[in-house]
Design a protein around this nucleic acid. Sequence first.
RNA 1: GUGACCAUGGUGCAACGGUUAGCACAGCGGGUUGUGGUCCCGUUAAUGAGGGUUCGAUUCCCUCUGGUCACCCCA
Length: 473
Amino acid sequence: MPAKVKKYAKAKPAPKKAPPKEQAPAADQQPPMADPNAAAMMPRPATRGVATPQTLRGMKDILPSEQKYWLHVRDAAEPLAAAYGYDRIDTPILEETGLFVRSVGKQTDIVEKEMFSFIDAGGENVSLRPEATASIVRSYINHGMFNQPQPVKLFYWGPMFRHERPQSGRFREFHQFGFEVLGDKHPVLDAEIILIAHLFFKELGIKTAVQINSLGCPTCRPTYLAELTNYYRAKRSQLCENCKRRLLKNPLRVLDCKEAGCAALKDGAPQIVDSLCEECKNHFMRVLEYLDEIQVPYVLNPHLVRGLDYYTKTVFEIWPADETESSQSALGGGGRYDGLVEVLGGRPTPACGFAIGIERAILQLKSANIEPSVRNKPDIFMAQLGDVARRKVVPLFEELRKAGINVASSFSKDSLKSQLEIANRLGSRYTLIIGQKEVLDGTVLIRDMEAGMQEIVDYNRAVGEMKKKLGRP
RNA sequence: GUGACCAUGGUGCAACGGUUAGCACAGCGGGUUGUGGUCCCGUUAAUGAGGGUUCGAUUCCCUCUGGUCACCCCA
């Protein structure tokens, strides 16, 4: 029996190459599997390797070795959500395309050219979400959350999709977490949102700078846009082609252009802060006051414009501390979106929030050489010799586990040598060994991996003994 | 979407218009029968895909795919 298992294990990794040793054994080793697909997947006369599917462009596996970073980020974000009273919400990854067109904005790059949209089998035009705020707002309306005590505070975490050319810190499937507060227009909430984003990075040990601006509201923004358009129209010839178009469609975006010609002009451009209406100006001032109060450093950036149409009043981005304005890698961003709920058919509801790019946060973690602690080492490794011993070892493993002890094992191995090798690799403090002899005597061998000392204990007393050794109650 | 560079075993590298395609690490198996972290030996495993040039291509050319970087824009 064991021999057969061994053989099978050996034969398994060689499906690619057939010609060299084309023999019979492989065939009669798989009688139990009648899976017809197995044959299809391993064509007998396969010469070269069978083409293996690859991940799609811009998508990637998050391997076990990477998980510690993701855990670390989550461990920084979740307690903040809990502390500030933001409840977790998960919305579908697939939504009707119209949701994003209406919220993010038809003119935006995201909607214009970056959405994963398709017609589904039912003829519906659907899209993979490029961001989460739209879905959160939809959900808020759908479930009548305006009937709950306001504001409603929500926290989310999940994958987003944008069909862009991959680059450093940019993937087609990427992950964000975010905080949203709906149903209250108080400026202290803008500050709270910014504070949380700031605290998150502080918690991780990443140095960041908050860039902040106000985009006004429907009463004052049009005046500003007119002013801005006027300013640029006079200098139209100096703008890049792109900006000439932008001037008509979305003049705010011209401020964001990095072309030398356009960038030179923006210093002289009228600033929106100067044309804010009383309410917006007041709101902005108060946000800044609160930020001063809670000691969140920020940089007033009159050129900060966000690529989503729904923002009003406060907008902000979090940049790595050492990045300059030309940086294209915001770690996170957000702002107030007082008009969005209404745009999606809800009653007028003020709201604000932010999102953080998790991959980008992890990138910063790595470039700052911050390595999250590795997973906990097992206290005990359970080794066994032979089938009889295996039967005794499994229940013991279970008892130890229930006693709250971190146990590891490799039950499928046969030799003690290889099991000790694994125990060593895992860094376990003790190895419990049960072989033929121990089974007969009703004992267990306890090996102290560091000292190399061994002692024999009654099988029934093993759990108690180990608890004592490990200092467990 | 535009441009530049790149693509060899699981990983990191090497090589040449004519091969046994090398090396290291990892993996697996051994170094006598039940003992790890060192050492020694053996062994598995690769030229991204498809065309073309050529007597011959892993090497040269084209296309595709993917990666990296920049632009665009965003997280």
